[in-house]
Design a protein around this nucleic acid. Sequence first.
DNA 1: GTGGTCTAGACCACA
DNA 2: GTGGTCTAGACCACT
Lengths: 131, 131, 131, 131
Amino acid sequence: MFELDIRSRKPIYEQLVERLKELIITEVLKIDEQLPSVRTLAQQLTINPNTIQKAYRELEIQGYIYSIKGKGSFVSSANDSQNTEKLHKVKNDLIKLLSEAMYLGVTAEELITIIEEIQASIGGGIEHDQN
Amino acid sequence: MFELDIRSRKPIYEQLVERLKELIITEVLKIDEQLPSVRTLAQQLTINPNTIQKAYRELEIQGYIYSIKGKGSFVSSANDSQNTEKLHKVKNDLIKLLSEAMYLGVTAEELITIIEEIQASIGGGIEHDQN
Amino acid sequence: MFELDIRSRKPIYEQLVERLKELIITEVLKIDEQLPSVRTLAQQLTINPNTIQKAYRELEIQGYIYSIKGKGSFVSSANDSQNTEKLHKVKNDLIKLLSEAMYLGVTAEELITIIEEIQASIGGGIEHDQN
Amino acid sequence: MFELDIRSRKPIYEQLVERLKELIITEVLKIDEQLPSVRTLAQQLTINPNTIQKAYRELEIQGYIYSIKGKGSFVSSANDSQNTEKLHKVKNDLIKLLSEAMYLGVTAEELITIIEEIQASIGGGIEHDQN
DNA sequence: GTGGTCTAGACCACA
DNA sequence: GTGGTCTAGACCACT
């Protein structure tokens, strides 16, 4: 379920954040569903609990999850107040990446096809090309 | 022209790489055009020449520029052999980012509009018959 | 173990890269084995840590090792995607060097002997059934 | 005849040295044949005469050509005194490169085929894969 | 004057 | 403790 690449240059906690976001976005993890506890996950993945902790904290900051002391961490509903700024950031990143892709030769048609596929996969919860 | 955020978590040299890529992609910097010299740019931005050089070296590795000892650094024409793997990476990143954007409520229509705008901005910078 | 020639025209970091490649190729350093830390090696060789790091970074780019912040640097298993282009480069270099050697009077027989010796030294370093 | 890559990281004078060596080795340039004058070549290639000068000096040091003041530069016969040490160096380089090639998956058979091809091309003065 | 290498020494981020 | 970034300042190689 969590395919962490220990060899990647990307810090482990960032990989975790990314992966968990993905699971939330594709609604594998539903709203208010409880995430595995820090310790459990640390054991499962055989990595340092501090690293899990850091990932959860980051997700909380970004508004994807919320934590209740003594109970655990839960998937947050896509809340509105934070969305505005996140949207802004994501759009900016998107423009950069789309520019680069097109500079490298990806056509507008290809991009539209990709968009349509994603649209379908989000709506339906279909499986997703693995990383 | 170069808005560096010295306080950012993102390393200065990476910011530089990103910014210069942008200028190359949007063809503000044309193929074979000379970049500012390491020392000149360092003075302009009041950062260490080594940092500039690190950025230039990274751009060279990524195939965006080439540097010649004693002459200077120049914009490279898109290299085909490197493009294949870069394309793969960019597409993967794109899928992630597009998913996130659509989860946050960006519609397919909006995305297509963005794509068309980018297409115009890249295609419009130079003569049309160059293709 | 590392015979660096501080006076050589060849940069220290390149000498290091070459030497470490050798150790990896001859499997003195095995896959996933940890390399000496940047600082340790710097002390041992009495050269600047930055120089070691530059060498390690170069080896990482070339796909021979991978580095993880906070953990260390490790020997990478041969990466396929990079191999194709590296192979091409190495073959070209080989043709040049072989031509030169034969011009200088090395016979084909001698070369074949050398090849067989290398084959033995690479293949013989580890268990036989690993192939 | 001289395909210099101004964009290459390899200094121009080194490219020249390499290319001229190649022409001598493949006997396109015969023993005692006169090389183009520094100025002529500089004009032809539109590069700085100093750069040509440096290449010729290097070739002279390595024993591939000899220069006579006021007359020009000429291809030297493969002389013996220098050959011994050159041979040693070339063999060492060869071992490194062959090891790397085999580590990357080139088989002994392939290498032998390459050797046979080169042997044929040197003996006969056949054309040579460019660069 | 150009890029490239190296040092000494400080500081940050990750596990 | 690990790797990674940055600075200040020196020196080399190439054109």
